[in-house]
Design a protein around this nucleic acid. Structure first.
Lengths: 177, 177
DNA sequence: CTTTGCATGTAACATGTTACATGATTCA
DNA sequence: TGAATCATGTAACATGTTACATGCAAAG
């Protein structure tokens, strides 16, 4: 059962903040968790149906879904489980690892585009941080923590590119056969 | 076609380094890429059969697979593609984001176990770095780069936990930046 | 009156994991 | 002899994406 569905968790979490339609759940997830979570309609609608079946959510008169008491209990219990250790699959590192077959020039280009993407994210995170501060919701510390995670890791990526660029530019060790 | 199989890429890459049986491919991937890549037998065997069908690999007398010339070309071309942007699904951040429903104590425990795991990884990365230096292979700069990525990001996680712990322990002081 | 956004849903497909079946070889 | 490791494979299942079909309502 290792790969229990975290879709349920994300949907219940979204509804715990605010009742919404299926469409609205997706929008909420994109707007708030977009940088580190993703759900598609093909997952959300069947999940909502299953949650309703289990009486964890209810559909109100407007067609919006509201989380029930049992739903909140279930949410708390799912949150308490250890986060699923996603099997690691980092496409960037796969390419760097085999970069000998890619060539130095392309490898350097890959590094640059990685750094550019990280810098773009940093700017976005900065905007999100300010938005959270302005709203001053009770959830603010938690939301802020997720954004800060993004900031720390984007900076780590940029620093890694700096170091790695130097490593790749040195002709000494990086000569391919 | 956005979700092209990167299993092919990892298997071809492993065979470009050294011919191996299906079992050996898996072992090679675990030993070398284990921290940022994963393949299961259920993927490897059908992938090897498909690669053989496409004449990208050949089976030699001992039953080991060897990459062909076409296989090397295909590998180079796959490496040149932009890394797949894996839909973001970070179970830790999902829990942190909804941590209001989890409780402060459990949230802090989650932070601590995250930091512990990161510290353990740092030690492992350190050992791998030294092993790479000792072997002195031509691939060393690239292998080293992947490990260094892990180091930078593990450190980022530890630093983030430090900051976040403070944020959770006294939610009033949410002004730092 | 047409485009855009809201809203729901499904079917086909792609991907990937887990559990199992099977057998050979190596080594203590 | 018995355990561990090497080795191959498949079937059932879980998960998730993409493309499509459908329709309403608001805005321009």
């Amino acid at each position: 059962m290792s790969r229990r569905s975290q879709t349920r968790l994300s949907v219940l979490g979204a509804l715990a903040t605010e009742p919404a339609t299926g469409y609205g759940v997706r929008r909420a997830i994109i707007e708030t968790l977009g940088h580190f979570w993703h759900e598609s309609f093909g997952q959300i609608y069947p999940t909502l149906a299953a949650l309703e079946e289990d009486e964890l959510v209810e559909r109100d008169a407007d067609g919006r879904f509201t989380i029930t008491k049992r739903g909140r209990d279930e949410l708390a219990s799912m949150l308490a489980e250890e986060p699923e250790a996603t099997p690691p699959r980092n496409g960037l590192l796969l390419r760097i690892f085999f970069a000998q077959h890619l060539g130095r020039k392309r490898a350097l280009e890959l590094l640059e585009s990685t750094a550019d993407a990280a810098k773009k994210k940093l700017a976005e995170f900065d905007a999100i941080e300010r938005a959270i501060d302005e709203e001053a919701r009770p959830e603010a510390p938690f939301w802020r923590a997720t954004v800060r995670y993004g900031v720390f890791h984007a900076r780590a990526t940029i620093a890694w590119v700096e170091e790695t660029r130097a490593l790749f530019e040195k002709p000494r060790a990086a000569k391919s056969r």
